[in-house]
Design a protein around this nucleic acid. Structure first.
Lengths: 214, 214, 214, 214
DNA sequence: AATGAATGAGGGTTCATTCAT
DNA sequence: CATGAATGAACCCTCATTCAT
């Protein structure tokens, strides 16, 4: 009577290790044996669940983003006012804290791989799109409630904001001395504040601490 | 009687090929032999000029960015009005056209590699910083001339803009159907327009065609 | 209440699958898992009945030849005249029809393996010997009845004939365009006819259709 | 100034080793590393000259047969009487002596592999065909000179003879106690003698010693 | 009696690097 | 200067075998 979930359990365990290794060593250096070691199984076992390395990494990317997007869905469902929710988005996006940094590194590796991998492009389309929609819906709420300037398409504003976050995070991850987490926070919050209908001259909002995006 | 410049010539030739291969195949798949083939030399010759693969790729990144940033320096020196220059920046940044796309791909690979490579972090700091400063100086000019809203730190605005460009370009390169070059252009130009002192409700400026960023 | 014969049944089923796989994929490519799949059991089950792969294949060869030789024993017992029986031998040997071809392929694999496997040499000695004796006895009958030339040792004639069949079949199996089943038939029947006491110039006997040797 | 024939030399050396390993271990057990060891080069070197194992073995088969057929071509050109030449064929075919036995083992492995490998089928067609033609031409000569019975198509007789040799050799190689080299010789020579126009009752010709077929 | 999860040794293949010429 | 032959460590993947259930 095999436990019903051995396969699901093992797969999840191996995929988590794969994400960990991708973040730690870079996709480029991922060795199946490292994943195995981290997962505490043999190399053969990894291949028992994933035919090829490619299949493994594709699944790992998917796994990582599922978790990642799910983790931030609460922001959408929060009943904080829209501008606060945008600030939460910023906070949750900052590459700070092991888990969030790990998630970021995996996203970045995904994007680079996606350039030449249609399967990953599809993955990005799906998860990135979902996230963009979450942010767009906050803008929509904000315009509806009058907290946010009525001019500007919510989707366009969302694209501005998430791309800005991506670009800045990239620099933070690349160890830029000119772009630290703090500078990133300030920059993003300023962008948010300028969208407020009560904007001019107000100080940048105090950072709201929220769980990371990991 | 070898010309004294034969070494410099060969090196440049090999580095150009390296960039080409990075863009075409991805850093991850770069083989020294591919570079050699593209450069029309033997594998041994590549190692004659670059001791290790790492040395080769580090040099190639440097080579690529030197060219890349130099190519866009004319925007800084243009005597167009600041807002036009910002629109030129946007245009020159769009991942459109073989050369620009190639340059973009190399930048992206650099960032990912830089996460774990201090040498590349330094490189990024240097070239990305130079580029950020170019953009910041345009904002400064715009505020001085009164074309751009006086509120907002020029450097911060520059960070917003270049990070937005980076983030959007990443999605375009990743083949996103939701983020095409056209959407990217519209989004960025809207951002620029909203900074204008003559901003509200004006239509998005007609795209100014400029050479790519390659 | 497991029937006592369940083991024998399962073994036979697994062995049949093994022969099938040997014929289909070649001994060289036989994987225990393929046998298991074909037999509709798990890989573990195969090893439950056969400790090692070697044990499995040795047993499979034996199984195959038992069936194979048994299938042709009726020729010995036929009361057709000796020359007819020889023609039946030829017909039953032609690598034509799925079953016969499968059997041939297994024989061939056996011979090659036997070169380095004493166990299989023994097997070959036994079954091949039995078959040779069957053919020799037909020659003996033919000489006794006067249908076949009295000169020539029956065993030697049998060796000539079966080796010729083997050599020709090998070429047919190897896909030779110069040695088709039809050419093989003609060649062998000519050999038989030339042994007849009423031999010179007679046309080759019409092929006698018989079941294959499988 | 690289020696002009490094490649040809190395290839020949590696192919010879490949044949040796095929004969010694069987095609089934051939490891690239064994070939490398026998050739006194590294595993990498083998792949430097042969992209894949398959390419290596295909080339090795070709190499082996080229040598093998060339070695026996002198029989065709001999000016001995046809029947003597046939006896020489028999002798040169007997799996006796290291070199000849090695060649035989490789032929046998080829045939088995050819069953599922069209490339090898082509190879067999070519070399086996050439050999069959050599033998057929001897029969033709014999009939022209009146030494050999005029009845019987030379090609058909050749097929009888070479297939008989193949079948018998197979049994010898498989270690049959009932089919030794001596029995094989006797059997084949009897076949030859029966073709003589001066045939009845003559003793089997004394074995003519010739170099092996290797 | 039977399974399927897990193993790990083994082998083909790749490729950066070396070096004699 | 430049080459191409040669290397060998590294890595992915296969598959016979084991064993708890």
């Amino acid at each position: 009577m095999p436990r019903p979930s051995v396969e699901a359990e093992r797969k999840a365990q191996i995929l988590a290790s794969t994400c960990k290794v991708i973040a730690a060593e870079g996709f480029r250096h991922l060795r199946v044996s490292d994943v195995a070691k981290d997962a505490g199984v043999s190399g053969g076992t990894v291949h028992y669940y994933f035919e090829t390395k490619r299949e493994l990494t594709d699944a790992a990317f998917e796994h990582c983003f599922e978790v990642s997007v799910a983790r931030r869905r609460w922001i959408l469902e929060s009943d904080e006012p829209p501008l606060s929710r945008l600030r939460m988005v910023v906070e949750s996006y900052l590459p700070e804290g092991a888990e969030t940094v790990e998630a970021w590194k995996v996203w970045v590796e995904l994007w680079v791989e996606a350039i030449r991998n249609p399967e990953l492009q599809e993955l990005n389309e799906r998860f990135y799109g979902e996230w963009r929609d979450i942010v767009a819906s906050i803008f929509r709420d904000g315009q509806a409630s009058g907290d946010i300037h009525p001019s500007g398409d919510p989707l366009e504003l969302a694209n501005m904001m998430v791309s800005m976050l991506d670009g800045l995070a990239l620099q933070v991850l690349a160890g830029s001395r000119a772009m630290t987490v703090d500078t990133m926070r300030t920059t993003c919050l300023r962008f948010v504040d300028q969208l407020s209908t009560a904007n001019v001259g107000q100080p940048v909002a105090v950072a709201v601490r929220t769980p990371g995006i990991g």
